[in-house]
Design a binder for these strands. Structure first.
Lengths: 177, 177
DNA sequence: ACTTCATTATGAAGGACGTACATAAATCAT
DNA sequence: ATGATTTATGTACGTCCTTCATAATGAAGT
């Protein structure tokens, strides 16, 4: 399905479209699996990152950078998690501007109980994928993300605006007018 | 990045997260490439499908089914395309309930001029992917989508509600309370 | 010490996607 | 002919994500 045009350089476009379709597919199944549990995909992403990180928390900016979204967005997602008691905010004792987000015990419990149905859903959607194929898919996707990161860094560096400054950017186009 | 927990059954979860990240990466680059052109990802998806289909148009429902989203959503996206003059609605002479969406010459022109910058962007984000890897990625993603489709069909069939009817569903959970 | 610039998180506003439910028109089934 | 079903869409809503503006804090130069 969706062959679109028959070119040879269309390969990348087709792959991109396929990634989009796959994302929607995963999202749909995940939403169904976590039904009632009511954590949306963005919030879940952040919660997983918190769960994987050190216990003293991660700053909003670092979360934004690793998730590849704007920091404003992460603020909102952490709001959601905090409202549900799955995460908390603590001040950063080294930089009082910064806010560290931590996962709470309730958050860990949530993940634990969330693991089973979600993994069932994932097992279903990844039916007859071999472990090799899984790792391959994961590897390709992460390379994609890495390329994007490098690319956006490159773009934001010489994008006309002659900001010679540091610009340790998070991959977001926040620098554009 | 994002190893999360060290299990063996976590592989699927990691792959799913990677797909999500890859999707965001592609979206970001695509948005940058089409900057000013202002077609959002959903609308673009529909436009591509229209461009690939027969000239007499595709019904809203068929579009929804193939794109894997609700038909209401497609209605909105076609609204957008129509407002921009890239698509038009024509009545279906065989079924007067149905509405066929067609791509307009302006739509084709848009795609033509959109092809170059977007392919440049895609080439950039797929840097150092071999053609084999591209097709592999595409293949894996489409298998994912196919699994989801089958899965949701299966779920909606015996989901408690004893609708013995035909239920030629589009993969959406429209049947749920 | 004071000023100036950079960064951090967040408030405010908005666009887009996507969903569920309800509705009108048209078709199908009996 | 009557009732059920399908089709698209109106209405209402939630979430994600963005940009711009702002207050608090840090860093650095004079």
């Amino acid at each position: 399905m969706a062959r679109f045009t028959a070119g040879d350089d269309t390969l990348a476009l087709e792959a991109a479209t396929a990634v989009r379709t796959a994302f929607h597919a995963v999202e749909r199944v995940r939403a169904h699996g976590a039904q009632g549990r009511g954590l949306s995909s963005g919030a879940l992403d952040i919660l997983m990152r918190l769960s994987a990180s050190a216990d003293d928390g991660v700053s909003i900016g670092d979360l934004a950078q690793s998730a590849g979204v704007s920091s404003r967005n992460v603020t909102g997602l952490v709001d959601t998690l905090e409202r549900d008691g799955l995460a908390r905010r603590v001040p950063d004792r080294h930089d009082r501007r910064s806010v560290l987000a931590q996962i709470t015990p309730a958050g860990r419990a949530w993940i634990e109980s969330f693991r089973r149905p979600t993994q069932a859903a994932m097992a279903a959607i990844f039916r007859d994928f071999t472990p090799d194929e899984l790792t391959q898919l994961r590897h390709l996707c992460l390379r994609l993300a890495e390329n994007q990161h490098r690319l956006s860094r490159h773009l934001s560096r010489n994008d006309g605006t002659d900001t010679p400054g540091r610009n340790r950017d998070d991959g977001t186009d926040n620098t554009r007018p």
